[in-house]
Write a protein that binds this DNA or RNA. Structure first.
Lengths: 198, 198
DNA sequence: AGTATAAAACTCATCGTTTCGTATTTGGAT
DNA sequence: ATCCAAATACGAAACGATGAGTTTTATACT
């Protein structure tokens, strides 16, 4: 359906798309994802509601796109000299992400995802899994080369590294402070330290 | 307003209250907290919508009460022989809680709390903080008597113990499986092991 | 006598869909 | 190249459905 260069008619307006994502980002500075309505986006973007519904399945998808469209969301990590460093850098990046203006939005997206299977998948595919995959990969490689202890399941270790960050974001975001930034990654990675180390 | 034994007239109907909480619990087996409407509760409980609004401030409060009214939610922990054991038992209890029928409901309540300050406080006061307080207390005592290392902040350690459980509940509840039950508490508490141990 | 109750009607907001007339682009024919 | 017709996206408006939270009223209970 998506192939077939033989397609007539008017193409999707890139102008509308940008206006919509832009308006979404602006509105998110003032309201929560839950309070945000498709109608308000349409109004702010000076666009018909139909246009939004045509291109996105639901609100979560729009917000996710809007988030991704922000500059700075796509910056790759610098290469690390060890898997240990790679992981602390990834955790550091995650902490900065949830402590930014977008932190609340991310928490709210994660929340929306609890009510709808579709939203959960959108959230996972676009944000959570890429992040977790990278961490799981680093854990696996670090286990292979002996940097980490290998008597812990990879998926469990990844949850133990990332879980507390999301938990703090949702339970008491105030405490995502400088001290947490500084101490958490180093503290967390200890769970992977080989038994003979320390 | 709530005191004053000198009150004439009809008192609050305990029958209505139970019917409402009961209906809420039943409906929660079929729908998410987000989808649950006060109207549907009223209808199922054969009660006027007004009655619900008179006694609870919002949906979160009703659901919270309904959850607490279930048998098994109030069971105290057996006394532990050490703070180490106390914590693993508390973690075990938390895992059983979120892996029960109520797991999804708890995740959804946590989610609702992200959009509303009132809901967040209801959730924290009734569920999260009692739990976290107990764990923080055990950490503190264990640090005092030398059972745990004391070069980690109590609040951080508590988040590192509980965070992964909530994270798994919300991100991939399927993996709250028997293996997780069995391995997580023992694995998690290692973060508190003294440096010379192992 | 006083108050809680169920039921119903009400206002208001928003959702997601549908309809409609218009604007715009494309591909093919000339 | 130029024009035309088909195809499609567009904004605006209206729709029915749903549910929130309030108000009213007559009734039941203590």
């Amino acid at each position: 359906m998506e192939n077939a260069a033989a397609k007539k008619g008017r193409p999707r307006s890139e102008k509308s798309r940008k206006a919509i994502l832009n308006a979404t980002n602006k509105l998110l500075l003032q309201t929560s994802v839950q309070e945000l309505s498709i109608e308000s986006i349409a109004k702010k973007a000076k666009v018909g509601k139909t246009t939004i519904y045509r291109w996105w399945p639901n609100k979560t998808a729009v917000v996710m796109d809007a988030l991704a469209s922000q500059p700075g969301m796509q910056t790759p990590l610098p290469t690390a000299s060890s898997h240990h460093d790679a992981i602390t850098m990834q955790l550091d990046k995650l902490i900065r992400l949830v402590d930014s203006n977008n932190g609340q939005t991310i928490a709210q997206l994660f929340s929306e995802a609890q009510a709808s299977e579709i939203s959960l998948n959108i959230f996972k595919d676009n944000l959570l899994e890429p992040l977790m995959d990278a961490i799981r990969y680093s854990i696996e490689e670090g286990q292979k080369n002996g940097e980490f202890r290998d008597d812990i399941e990879i998926s469990l270790a990844a949850d133990m590294l990332c879980g507390p960050i999301f938990f703090r974001l949702m339970a008491h975001a105030k405490d995502l402070d400088r001290d947490f930034h500084k101490t958490y990654p180093d503290e967390a990675i200890k769970i992977l330290a080989p038994a003979n180390a320390n």
